[in-house]
Structures are given as C-alpha cells and as structure tokens.
Nucleic acid binder design. Structure first.
Length: 464
RNA sequence: GGCCUCGUGGCGGAAUGGUUACGCAGCGGACUGCAAAUCCGUGUAUUCCGGUUCGAUUCCGGACGAGGCCUCCA
C-alpha cells in the first residue's frame, strides 16, 4: 500500500505523489526563539520527524529535503530581550536571547530523538528573500504601502482569478466570515480590516533592515513572510508537504499561501498541508495561569511533572501513542505506561541489530501515520520474539532502547547491587530462605526488584 | 457571535455499513519455598434521541458534553 496522507486543503486522505521522487520536499514551521519550548511544541517536531524517517525509508535517505526554520525576528523576542538584559543595547540582547533559546531547542529536540532537518534556516538570514516577495506583491497589486508599512490585501487576491486560490481556502472560511468575525485588528493605515502586515517600520532601538518599496526608514518583516521566503529558497515555489500545529492553519499558513501563491502566480504553495492536533495537560489546556505549563527541558531534567524525570524516548513514545491529528492528553499515567512498554521492548532489543521494518508496520505508518496501529504491530513483533524486527520498527519510530532508571545509579552502587543479587541467588541455592528474603527486602527498600527467570538466572531493575 | 474538530471498555487508544485492534489495569491458571518477573487464558465499550438501511458505533439531522481557531499559542 502506498503512502496516504490527510490533506487539510481537501479535508481527506489522499495518495501521496511527490512532485519529484528524487527530491521529496517538506517544510515544517519551527520555533520562534524567545523561551523554552514547551511539550506542546514538541508534538509537531516529533510527528514530522516520524514522517521524515518514513519518507527517507520510502524514497531513499538522500531523496528527501526537510526544512524547519527558526524564527529569530519577532516582537516577543524583543520584549524578552529587554526584560532579561536591560543593561545591554536591545539588538545585542536579542542576539543573546535567540542564541541561547535556539541552543536549548536543539538540545531538547535531540533528546526527543529527532533527526536534524536538512536545512534549518533563520529568518534573519533571509530578509532579502522576503523583500523580494514583498516587492513583487506590491508591483502586482496584491499589497500596498501605507505609513511605512506594507500590507497584503486578501480582497485583491480574491479578485485576481486565474489559478490563484481563494483567500481562506485552506482554513475553509470566507473573507465575509472573517470581516463578520470583527475581531481583526483594525489599524488606521489598513484599507480593509482583513489586510495583514508584510513589513513594518522599526524604531531606532529595534532590529531593522532596509525596507522594500522605497520606504526610507528601516523596518522588519511581519510574521508570515519568513516562511514564504525560506520555503521558496530551499524548496521552490511549490513543494510537497507543509506541516505544523493545527493552530497555524489560520492565520499563519493561510497567509503564507496567500503571499506565496500571489507572488509566484501558483495554484498551490504546497500540495499537502498537514496539521497535528493540540495537547492538553491532565485534561486541561496548558497555560501559565493554570500552573500546568511544562517545558521539554523540565520533563527531561526536573521533577516538576509527576515528581520525577523522564527520558526523551519515553516522552516520544507517549507522544506517538495517539494519532497525530487527535487531541492528546499529556498525563503522568500515560508516561508511566509508555515507560513500561519501552522497558519491555528495550530488554529484548538491546544490542540487537535491526532488520528491515515489517510490511505491516510500513502499511500502518503509510496510512496517514497511523502510529497507534504501528505500535500494535511492534507489540506483535515482540510477542513473536522477533527482536530484530522490533528493533527495525523502533528505528523507524526513532526510538532507541533505554536503560531503565538504572542509568541514574553510580557504578559503585550498581556493583554493590550486583553483589547483593548474587548473594540472594546463592542463599536460595542452599535453601537459606531467611537470608534470601532479607536481601530481597533490603533491595526492595531501595526500589530494586529482582526478576528470576525460569532457568534460575536473576536480573534486577529499578522500580519506576 | 462565526467557523471547525471530537465523544469507543476501569483507563489509554485504533478501526469499521455486518463476529469492536492493541496496550495498561483487573481476574483465572502455569511456574515459584513465598513473592516478583515471565508465559497462557479471560470479562467488560461505541454519549443520548431521531432518520436512511435488511443491518448504524460508522452515513444524515438534532440534543448534551469536551476542545480548537477567529488575538503573531504547536
């Protein structure tokens, strides 16, 4: 069975046909680097990493180009920089914030088992490309200059006709509905309430670049234009897959489509748009005010969630247990269950070389990334004792075997435990059960459990 | 207010116009000095009310409930 993907553009699953099978091209919206990435941010990164691995498997590792940007120009960054480094000049402070946050992000997603994308461009490296698109949009009447701003006109897009899509086609809403919505920011320089900013003027202490369209003052780009510029640069005017969180459908992706299709006179920016569902924490929306806001780093290295640390592999498996388009409830219980499964898989696959992924596994993932069904197949492989097959499946998922909590013990502690376990085995061999039980209780008190196999060999593990 | 998504067992979570995967927990058994671990077996579910249909959990309408977008939050 070939790859089928759910396309937000058409609201249905479609067979995936790459524009060029020698170079399958995917763009995923990356982070705006102003703060630690939270666990909700991790979902698209993990989901599209699995898709990236699947595409590499299907089309060859050298035939997939994956671009995930870093947005390093944004007013939230400016605010954060001013707050955190009040003594520094703003631009210097911004540099510190974006460098530090990007480094933390790389650390986080690596711990989650995500491959680096083929290209990871920064918005500030592509200002010239943005200016070029903006110039073209103004020249062709899709955008206009007003008080140092450049604004895009969805109304102009809708009257353009030809192959250019209707504004709102992706989000499935009409311009009339949006005007009726009436919560659009109305600025005096806008011709229509639905017009959005492509470029805006910068104050002297704000980051600024030479403006397009003959605007004299320095300025900076609006939110959506960076993705249009960077995707064009690396993937061309039309590419295969564009991904991100479902909240990006509108306005972000809708506006990207508008900018790109109008600038390039194309029918589609990307053939397939994919969006992952939202994440809740213990049944509630994650928000700072509810106090359930949790970052990737906190899960990995603090005891804030569930009173303990979690490995990146466990976080990844927990994330993939739910289909990517469904809402996911992030709970301690779900992480514990994922860890239990991973412990079991790890035990049988440690040091085992992978074969190729089973056909059933590929079929499951090829059906719009049905990871739940794929995981069921991994359970089946384990049950059948097919360790190499299981390992191959785990590789496709990007999940490595873990060292159960044992990794947190020091070498000395582990040696001591090994000795106690040997003493327990020896005591049982001579039927000195009092002594054996005493040792076992002592180990249990230290959260060590003994696992005696049928052949008498004894292994041990940390209780979660 | 407008638009959209979702509602499956004790829990998590797939699939489907016709015996409802899989996992966790539970229960029973094997094994064990006793436990644990492991293995085998096993019960339980499609929110409610209408409609279409030989047949609906699936399709359509409504109710109730949860969530999202319309605010530069993935």
């Amino acid at each position: 069975m070939g790859l089928r993907l759910y396309n937000t553009l058409t609201r249905q699953k479609e067979p995936f046909e790459p524009i060029d099978a020698d170079n399958v091209r995917m763009y995923v919206c990356g982070p705006t680097v102003y703060d630690f990435a939270h666990i909700g941010n991790a979902r698209p990164v993990i989901v599209f990493d699995v898709l990236y691995r699947l595409l590499r498997h299907l089309y060859g590792a050298d035939h997939v180009t994956y671009v995930r940007n870093i947005t390093d120009v944004d007013d939230k960054i400016n605010e954060r920089a001013a707050r955190d480094y009040p003594a520094l000049p703003l631009n210097e402070a911004i540099g510190k914030v974006t460098q530090e946050t990007a480094a933390q992000y790389h650390k986080d997603v690596a711990a989650l088992g995500c491959l680096p994308p083929t290209h990871e461009p920064r918005a500030t490296e592509h200002i010239a490309g943005m200016r070029e698109i903006i110039e073209r949009l103004v020249q062709t009447g899709f955008a206009y200059v007003a008080e140092g701003h450049v604004l895009f006109s969805p109304a102009a897009m809708d009257s353009a006709g030809g192959m250019i899509p209707r504004y709102g086609a992706l989000a499935n809403r009409s311009l009339d509905e949006m005007i009726a919505g009436a919560r659009v920011d109305v600025a005096p320089y806008k011709r229509e309430a639905t017009d959005f900013v492509l470029w805006k003027p910068s104050k002297e202490d704000e980051p600024g670049w030479p403006s397009p369209c003959g605007i004299a003052s320095l300025g900076r780009p609006g939110w959506h234009i960076e993705c249009s510029a960077m995707s064009k640069h690396f993937l061309g005017e039309t590419f295969d897959i564009h991904g991100g969180g479902i909240d990006l459908v509108f306005p972000h992706h809708e506006n990207e489509v508008a900018q790109s299709c109008c600038a390039h006179r194309t029918a589609r920016m990307a053939n397939v748009f994919m969006h992952n569902g939202f994440l809740q924490v213990e049944g509630q929306k994650m928000s700072k005010s509810l106090g359930n806001f949790i970052t990737i780093d906190e899960l990995l290295s603090s005891t804030k969630f569930g009173g303990r640390r979690w490995s990146g592999e466990v976080l990844r498996l927990a994330m993939l247990k739910t289909h990517y388009r469904q809402p996911i409830d992030w709970t301690v219980k779900a992480l514990e269950e994922a860890e239990g499964i991973l412990d079991e898989w790890s035990e049988v696959t440690k040091g085992v070389a992978a074969t190729t992924p089973s056909a059933a596994l590929l079929d499951a993932l090829s059906d719009d990334l049905n990871a739940s069904m794929a995981i069921a197949e991994l359970h089946r492989l384990r049950k059948q004792g097919d360790a190499p097959g299981l390992r191959a499946g785990m590789d496709l998922f990007g999940i490595q075997p873990i060292m159960p909590a044992v990794g947190e013990l020091t070498e000395d502690e582990r040696r001591e435990i090994d000795q106690l376990v040997s003493a327990n085995t020896a005591a049982r061999a001579v039927k000195d059960y009092a002594k054996a039980d005493e040792i076992r209780n002592m180990l249990n008190a230290r959260k060590i459990i003994l696992k005696v196999a049928k052949d008498g060999t004894t292994r041990w593990a940390m209780k979660p």
